[in-house]
Simulated scan of single mutants.
Amino acid sequence: MGYDETVPAWLRTTAGWSWRLLMVVAAVALVFYATAQVQLVFIAVFLALVISSVLRPVTDFYARVMPRGLATGLALLTALLFFAGLLTYVISSVAGQWEKLAGEFTDGIDQILDFLENGPLPVSITADDVDGWIANGQEWLSEHGGDIASQAAASAGSVFEGFAAIALAIFCTVFFLARGKDMWTWFLNQLPARSRESWKVAGGAGWFTFSGYARGTVIIALTDGILAGIFLAILGVPLAAPLAVLVFIGAFIPIIGAPLAMIIAAVVALAADGFVTALIVTVGIALIGQFEGHVLQPLVMGSQVSLHPVVVAISVTAGTLLAGILGAVVSVPLVAVAWSIFTRLRHKDPPMDDDVPTAKEIALASRQGRDD
């Protein structure tokens, strides 16, 4: 049956695109719904893919001189020893400087209170006001202690789920590193022959982007942490090593992670060495962030992850609204993978001209059309 000629062409076109858009939205909503139902499995698999992408070069290096299975175990052991050594160093640093920092932090709080009470600010906050806020906070805690305890008991299950997710991630990582190519080939062989090439191209593009993002993020985070640690150590800021680790962790959370780490480092510097050092720390870590964005990101990531900053900001915001910190972490690599697959599979038309007519040119063309 043909089209009804009484329906305008623009309406038929709009209707066609509308139902296609609705189908895409429904498919995306279905994916999010299914992911929410098995969130623990999604987290575990995502973490396994990240670890696999980071450790795959190490595994390939070991596999040159030993069987693949043994190389996988040695790569995981190397990663475990690295993080264990890092954690031991941080704990020893905190234990050695904690008492000193506590006293300096108390002095810093007194300086802040004195500035708020006697400084040039139009609002005056006295020590009695702070004591009143603390008393109100203690009263609120005593009134809601039962609710907090019940929430803490409920969170015990979340802790167990966290350990389960880590165990599943390690289990999957072992197989991804040892037999990843065989698993992918098996999956492709389950598809119709006419679809295998498209899936192979899409999977290759997606893995290239995801692994590049994961490895690049780890390299950039390590560089940020090392630079921040050296910078804080030169300034003599206490707990330089733990703060450097905090900067390292913050680099994994796009947009919001680095500023939070900078604020915490500045607060510690303020408590220990005063306002001038805190200001220097803030400026220094901000410069490290600029070095990361303008030098490290293009150099390390290259063409593997090419997303506009606006897309990154929107992705992180949407991910945070949907799944909190987890959504902020996974949103950028998922969007990058989706865009990479789309660019590999699409049939791109020739680009249009960059010249955009001005309002004067549009008005002149419209006037000429009426005259004709």
Rank of each mutant, 00 (worst) to 15 (best):
R179N: 08
T185Y: 04
D224G: 08
R194P: 06
A193Y: 02
V201C: 04
G212P: 06
A202T: 02
A193C: 02
T185K: 04
T223H: 03
A202V: 00
G180E: 02
G206S: 06
S195M: 04
M183F: 10
W184A: 12
W207I: 12
W207T: 04
N189V: 00
A228T: 10
R179V: 08
G204R: 10
G206Y: 10
R179M: 10
G225A: 01
S198M: 08
W207Y: 11
F176N: 03
R215Q: 06
E197D: 12
L177V: 05
V201N: 10
D224C: 15
S211R: 13
A178Y: 15
A202R: 07
Y213M: 13
G180C: 01
S195V: 01
V201I: 14
N189Y: 00
F208W: 14
R215W: 01
G225D: 05
D182I: 06
A193Q: 07
A193E: 03
P192N: 06
A205Y: 15
I220M: 08
W186G: 00
D224A: 13
A228E: 12
G206A: 10
L227D: 12
T185C: 03
V218N: 12
T185Q: 13
P192M: 02
W184M: 10
A221T: 07
D224T: 07
R215L: 10
R194Y: 13
T209G: 12
